[in-house]
Design a protein around this nucleic acid. Structure first.
Lengths: 242, 242
DNA sequence: CTAACAATCATCGTATACAATATTTGTCCG
DNA sequence: CGGACAAATATTGTATACGATGATTGTTAG
């Protein structure tokens, strides 16, 4: 199973102090991150038994984690058939980006109004890491840094409920990009994280919100959302029918 | 247990065709509705065994439903202690209403842009039912109708993901009102559902969004959000310490 | 009477075994 | 060879039993 790549269990201590077992939150986070980082492609079957073997735990913890992942819409639970990494439709894709523009637009304004030295440090460090990963050609780390930048920014708005919504929307965006991306980000888009941070840290809320809107629109415009269904078309492309 | 009131199980068929059992979705919906309708107050302990007896099912289904309710933040699962109807803090309360103003503001605009005869019928019928319940002094039905009006409106915007966020926010609002409400809605607030519908059905998106903002602010202003913690103060009030 | 401790009980967490359902494989027939 | 059907296998769903944890009650000492 592909899930073996990059999701090896560790034997760190769990919250409950048991050194041999990972708890369901860890399982959840591992799978969530693997999905957001494009390590588990849309449609991947997540079999309970394999996850149990992989994490060295019983089914209860695995099922609890899978249930939470389903609540976040990053996997789909199909009765009697199992858990699959979600494959968002074109309609979902459009709404996810619209929802992000609405909510992230609001949150970035609040962040700009609340700028402070710890925020500056957090954003600056993150961008430095992003830049370093790009220079190093570390694709996996670039993907990680880019997707987490938006979450970091949302977390600066003192709005944990909406930051939670954004968390879900970012994960779904990641799946959407995996399915529908037809071109890589250009230089302008790559620079936009820095520009966004500059505007936020300068307290220019209106401009930050407007740039966020354009930034998200730009990501959406890179997607081929005219296709009826991503996974079916990916299959027919693989088989040479296009 | 208070949950007995109004949550008697029925023996309707489940999706799996087994006539004797209710499935976890039904359990989820029953409890969710009871919470939104103020039949299960904040802090209520939802014991697995009692729910199993009540619905005539095993623990697996009950736990699945409780897990989903926790994902919606309408209950809190406390390790080794059980499930309790959530008791939102003052900070949560403020954010919930802010989030509703952001998201419902967006959705009502879309609804106004999309008005059509089925929408008109749905909104009109709902308001009629709300009016009828008020005339009849049917408090429970009034509460039901009022909280479901916002969901109905959100569902007109062809935005299922955000309608899902609103669903959660409405449920949390209901809990917040149960804890923090210091005065009943006045006549102006009561009329606002009709005014909102009129504006939506007239396609006046900007005015509808502005009224929705004021409407939600009005609900928030009726709450006593200066209290540190609703449940502790409710207890000290009950014991005559205030 | 109050506080501390122990015992008991209630409730949740989880492992194991079995049931139910879907998928895959094998066999047979036209 | 392809299609239909049956059997075997894989995987999820659930019941039951036991373990773990927290809450409540009872007892004792100061």
């Amino acid at each position: 199973m592909k899930a073996r790549n990059g999701t090896e269990p560790t034997t760190g201590t769990t919250d409950s102090g048991n050194p041999a077992r990972v708890d369901s939150s860890t399982i959840y986070s591992r799978i969530f991150d693997a999905i957001v980082d494009h390590k588990l492609p849309p449609g991947t079957h997540l079999k309970e038994d394999e996850l149990c073997d992989l994490f060295g735990v019983g089914r209860t913890r695995v099922r609890s984690a899978l249930s939470r992942l389903a609540a976040d819409h990053v996997i789909e639970l199909v009765a009697n058939r199992g858990a699959f990494v979600a494959s968002p439709s074109v309609e979902e894709a459009r709404e996810v980006f619209r929802a992000r523009r609405v909510i992230e637009g609001h949150l970035i304004r609040r962040a700009a109004e609340r700028r402070n030295p710890p925020m500056q440090q957090a954003l600056t460090e993150h961008l430095h890491g992003e830049h370093t990963a790009r220079e190093a050609g570390d694709t996996a780390q670039v993907i990680r840094r880019c997707s987490r930048y938006h979450q970091l920014l949302a977390d600066q708005a003192d709005s944990p409920i909406m930051a939670g919504f954004i968390r879900e929307l970012i994960a779904r965006s990641s799946l959407i990009v995996a399915i529908y991306e037809k071109s890589k980000p250009d230089k302008c888009e790559i620079d936009e994280h820095r520009l966004l941070s500059d505007l936020v840290l300068a307290g220019r809320a209106d401009e930050a919100a407007a740039l966020m809107d354009r930034h998200l629109q730009g990501i959406e415009d890179r997607l081929d959302l005219k296709r009826e269904s991503g996974t079916i078309n990916a299959l027919s492309q693989s088989l040479g029918f296009n």
